[in-house]
Nucleic acid binder design. Structure first.
Lengths: 365, 365
DNA sequence: GCCTGCCCTGAAATCGTTCTCAGCCCGAGG
DNA sequence: CCTCGGGCTGAGAACGATTTCAGGGCAGGC
């Protein structure tokens, strides 16, 4: 009897191997001497199966190393258990922190995450949404600053409604949006305001603003906060002190060099994210300027590495991990009911990159 | 005529919407007045379809916003176009750089990437492999130091052969392995040797070694290189100067504090990765020690942020992005034929965290 | 006029699950 | 003895694509 079972087992394995394919539920059924239906019931539970039958099936499953085909399952209608995440760039610590938060929740709920890097290209983002819809993901989390472009927004809105129609969700993380879908955002405007107020309180009046790329909602919000604070303090904003970067270290470096080369007068630099602040620091150093003695510098995000810079960077703490967690919870419908728009508070982290302006730091134009 | 088509279109859309499901190939076929077979042929190309028919089908596809169901496709047998990637932690720059390289190649070849964080837990890693096999991914890329545990290795080996049997691949990235499957690794041993030689040349003899966690291949290799260099120079290795970390900033900080507290004498710290070096730097500073004046420090990996530390860290450049790219190319069978084991060269990057030891730095035990 | 071959199109099987119906067997109650 | 119900099991129809096999129609050559 035992020999017989072994023989059958062996047969199934050889057959499988030669076909170069997988063990299926029918193979298990055959070897266990039951129908596929019964195997399915054992696997899924919640249905009466006689104990000996169940044990036999479980044994065969183990022996054959059977693994359910997720595609067949998905096709039949049950959810796929997969969530798509579209970010700008994994190599950017801001996004990798968000993804880490997403993964935490995914792991806790046995979900799989498909990660896509759009590299800030709207066309690429749209393509990924299509691919993810093809994968019938349970949800798509769209992360990062939205492009404020009519055609793009129309396309996204359409995708969001298509997604909803097929029983999936779309969650927007890290940016406001005109799409009426759940959204998790940090209070970017407030952050810009806090930072600028801080600089003004320290006595700075001429502040270089290294902004994000044009047409991004994040750029817009962080800049608005800055202007609000300036306006409130009655400091006139010099448009010549504002320059666009691309949220990368390199672009922060270049923007600062350009500003230096322009001969503009300033005592502080407000970079719209930490990465650009790091680039700015490099450029300032290269120009022989000390931070904060000659020029003060602030960043935005509080990515893990900025506390190891020298001087340690004063910045805005954005709860990136929490943003990821909350987005994922909404995406898979875990946790409590949330309002459609979740605004996460930000916080000023004072470190050592800001000082009162000195005479020496006033470079003449 | 046009009105008629519109009407049919409209019907299909309403029907779909009410069912809360997706547009299928049959819907397209019905609306275009052809069979599903023809639609499939238009979609896939490479088969003669009369031009008017083709145009009509393409029009309906656009109008209904039809997107192929990847699961049905996968089930039918063509590959899934999905690759699974298992890493330790996305929030660790070492891994996010590797993933960035993987994504570059994935994007170029229209592949999707399922990312899994094992958080260095072998059981979790094994679970992910199972899930990915259930997804019938085309390949699995296993990244990060392998756990040197018999049961774990047996399981992985088994998975690798099961994968091969089902026509998928397993690629190992960043670690040697006893599994005979394609592998991409940096020359870790050489890196440890280069770094240690450099320290010895500068006159250091008592070097603290902050190692990785026990039983990891990467830990082993980087330590071996260190010992080889010590042995070659005839410097005796003091086991009291070696301490395990966990490849995290925090653990580097703790290990260094512990070493400091032990009262051991040393003039340099060799951290087995940059993250731990950053932690070590914080601990040294806290103890009032200057780097490199009092204690020299080296790291390993050359993650993007270490060139912005102060002092800029001397380290080993590991081509993380390239490792990711190569792994992915092998995973999807792109690019030229590669040898089974690809060893990528590493390079010493001399910056400012190493100096000759001074009398003052010799702390008495 | 008929046959051959070339385009083009469609019916139906298939992939691996799940789920809806049935149906079997056996014991208990009338 | 018959019926009924409960516990367990199986047959077969989806799900949505691809692919094989089998035509239908038409032009051209005899």
């Amino acid at each position: 009897m035992i020999g017989c079972v072994r023989l059958i087992l062996c047969c199934a394995m050889v057959r499988r191997a030669s076909r170069g394919t997988n063990v299926t539920i029918s193979d298990v059924a055959t070897d266990a001497g039951v129908s596929p239906t019964t195997v399915s019931r054992v696997l899924n539970g919640g249905y009466p199966v006689a104990k000996p039958t169940r044990l036999q099936v479980e044994k065969v499953v183990r022996e054959l190393g059977y693994i359910r085909n997720a595609h067949a399952q998905a096709l039949r209608g049950t959810s796929t258990g997969v969530v798509g995440v579209i970010i700008h760039d994994v190599a950017d610590p801001y996004f990798s922190e968000i993804v880490a938060g997403i993964q935490e929740v995914a792991a806790a709920h046995q979900r799989l995450v498909v990660l896509c890097n759009s590299l800030r290209d709207p066309a690429s983002e749209l393509r990924y949404v299509q691919m993810l819809r093809g994968q019938r993901v349970d949800a798509i989390i769209l992360t990062g600053g939205a492009i404020e472009d009519a055609a793009y927004l129309r396309a996204i809105r359409q995708d969001a409604s298509a997604l909803k129609q097929q029983g999936a969700r779309m969650v927007i993380c890290g940016r406001y949006s005109s799409v009426t879908t759940p959204t998790v955002v940090p209070d970017n405007r407030r952050g810009g305001e806090l930072l600028t107020k801080h600089l003004i309180e320290k006595g700075h009046r001429r502040i270089v603003e290294v902004m994000g790329p044009p047409n991004f909602s994040t750029t817009e919000e962080r800049s608005t906060g800055h202007r609000d604070a300036l306006a409130e303090a009655g400091v006139e904003r010099d448009p010549l002190l504002a320059i666009h970067g691309r949220f990368t270290r390199e672009s922060g470096y270049e923007a600062t060099r350009a500003m230096l080369a322009s001969g503009a007068t300033f005592t502080a630099v407000y970079a719209a994210n930490d990465l650009m602040a790091v680039g700015a620091l490099a450029a300032l150093r290269e120009a022989g300027l000390r931070v904060p003695e000659d020029v003060s510098l602030v960043g935005f995000d509080d990515i893990p590495t900025v506390r190891d810079m020298m001087p340690r960077l004063t910045t805005i703490r954005v709860p990136m991990r929490e943003m990821g967690r909350r987005s994922m919870e909404i995406a898979i419908g875990a946790g409590d009911r949330q309002p459609r728009v979740v605004v996460l508070p930000v916080e000023l982290v004072e470190r050592e990159s800001v000082a009162r302006p000195t005479l020496r730091s006033r470079r003449s134009g």
